[in-house]
Computed example of a mutant assay.
Amino acid sequence: MAMLNTHAVTDLPQVRRQKILLLLERDGRVLASELSTHFEVSEDTIRRDLTELANAGLVQRVHGGALPRPKDSGKDYFARLNETDEMKRQLAQLAAQQVQNGQVVIFDSGTTPLHIARSLPLDIRLTAVTASPMTAVALAEYPGVSVILAGGQLNPATMAANGREALELIRGIKADLLFTGVCALHPEIGLTSPRFEEVELKQALLDSAAQVVAVTTADKLGAVEPFLIAPCNRVHTLYTESRVPTGDIEDYRRLGLNVVVA
């Protein structure tokens, strides 16, 4: 019986693409030139592999290679809210301790800022600003919290208002603190989003706060979405897990971020 040619198996596209995903998980990024050498195929072949993986939502294509995508990329708001794990709750409770009485605090859209709002002390006194109706309702339960809700068209994917009305309100506020939503945060690429329509508002949020706090589970670190919001160093404090599956937590500290791990 003839022996199986291992190179022939490796050259099968589906096998090679699975191995590319394993390399991406291990290294945090892959380069087409290096994959070409590793698998002994042309760069055109590798580029087709990466394009197929990107079309399947498994990687984010960038010039020369690919980066990971967050696990919940593309899921709607309620799907993400229902899947909230214990680590996200712990991070939210930890981040909520940063809020001080008398501050003006902006809560971005997303499920994590909602959990932070729900984790505040019952006797907290502050002015809260948000474009998320659900977060506004959660904050309204605190007797000492004055809530400012940005208006505009509701985006069903984020369950938050966006557009000119929300943008103008945010640009007119100078807050002490912003809890920014995180879709993906990469030390080299920065803070990115899968939705073009929310980029301008998120940039305005960053400009409106003296301190920017990002709270995220580790799967969103080292990941990249299609639309750039801001460089990574626009975040001042990062609350996350101690174990990062792609890259090194020290990459964020080297950029000047205060990294707090749960």
Score class of each variant (00 low, 15 high):
140 A>N: 12
14 Q>A: 11
60 Q>V: 07
167 L>K: 08
127 T>I: 14
45 T>L: 10
14 Q>C: 05
10 T>H: 14
124 I>C: 14
205 L>K: 03
58 L>I: 01
75 K>E: 08
25 E>A: 15
205 L>Y: 04
121 P>F: 00
177 L>P: 01
198 E>Q: 10
221 L>K: 04
91 L>P: 02
225 E>A: 14
209 A>K: 14
223 A>Y: 00
137 V>I: 14
249 I>W: 07
64 G>Y: 02
18 Q>I: 01
234 R>N: 08
73 S>W: 05
105 V>P: 14
30 V>M: 05
217 T>H: 04
239 Y>G: 11
160 A>S: 14
4 L>I: 05
252 Y>L: 01
203 Q>D: 13
101 N>T: 07
150 A>K: 03
32 A>S: 15
148 I>G: 00
145 V>T: 13
151 G>E: 15
240 T>D: 06
210 A>H: 13
30 V>A: 04
4 L>S: 05
69 R>F: 00
45 T>I: 08
78 F>D: 13
49 D>M: 09
206 L>W: 03
262 A>D: 06
107 F>R: 10
19 K>A: 06
115 H>M: 03
106 I>P: 07
43 E>T: 05
240 T>P: 00
78 F>Q: 14
56 A>G: 09
75 K>D: 09
199 V>Y: 12
87 M>S: 12
4 L>A: 10
71 K>S: 08
201 L>E: 10
128 A>W: 04
247 G>I: 04
31 L>V: 03
255 L>D: 09
113 P>V: 02
259 V>L: 05
60 Q>I: 05
209 A>N: 15
205 L>D: 02
119 S>M: 09
69 R>T: 09
232 C>Y: 02
223 A>K: 00
11 D>T: 01
214 A>E: 12
173 I>F: 01
45 T>G: 10
109 S>G: 05
53 L>G: 08
156 P>A: 14
167 L>H: 09
125 R>L: 08
251 D>R: 01
261 V>F: 02
34 E>H: 13
261 V>Y: 02
83 E>H: 00
28 G>M: 04
45 T>P: 07
150 A>T: 13
6 T>R: 12
53 L>N: 13
197 E>G: 06
5 N>P: 06
18 Q>H: 06
106 I>S: 09
32 A>R: 05
182 V>Y: 01
167 L>D: 15
80 R>K: 11
109 S>N: 09
213 V>D: 07
231 P>C: 11
230 A>R: 11
83 E>N: 01
96 A>T: 03
44 D>M: 11
84 T>R: 08
14 Q>Y: 05
253 R>G: 03
258 N>C: 09
193 S>P: 00
231 P>Q: 10
114 L>T: 05
102 G>R: 04
167 L>F: 09
200 E>R: 03
217 T>R: 03
105 V>L: 10
134 M>H: 10
247 G>D: 12
151 G>H: 08
211 Q>G: 08
22 L>K: 15
95 A>K: 07
86 E>T: 11
7 H>D: 15
229 I>K: 06
47 R>S: 03
257 L>M: 08
65 G>I: 05
8 A>T: 01
24 L>E: 13
251 D>I: 01
227 F>H: 13
23 L>K: 07
151 G>I: 06
243 R>S: 05
230 A>S: 15
257 L>E: 09
261 V>H: 04
177 L>C: 07
142 Y>V: 00
207 D>I: 00
247 G>S: 11
105 V>K: 13
54 A>D: 06
43 E>M: 06
137 V>E: 15
200 E>S: 07
92 A>L: 01
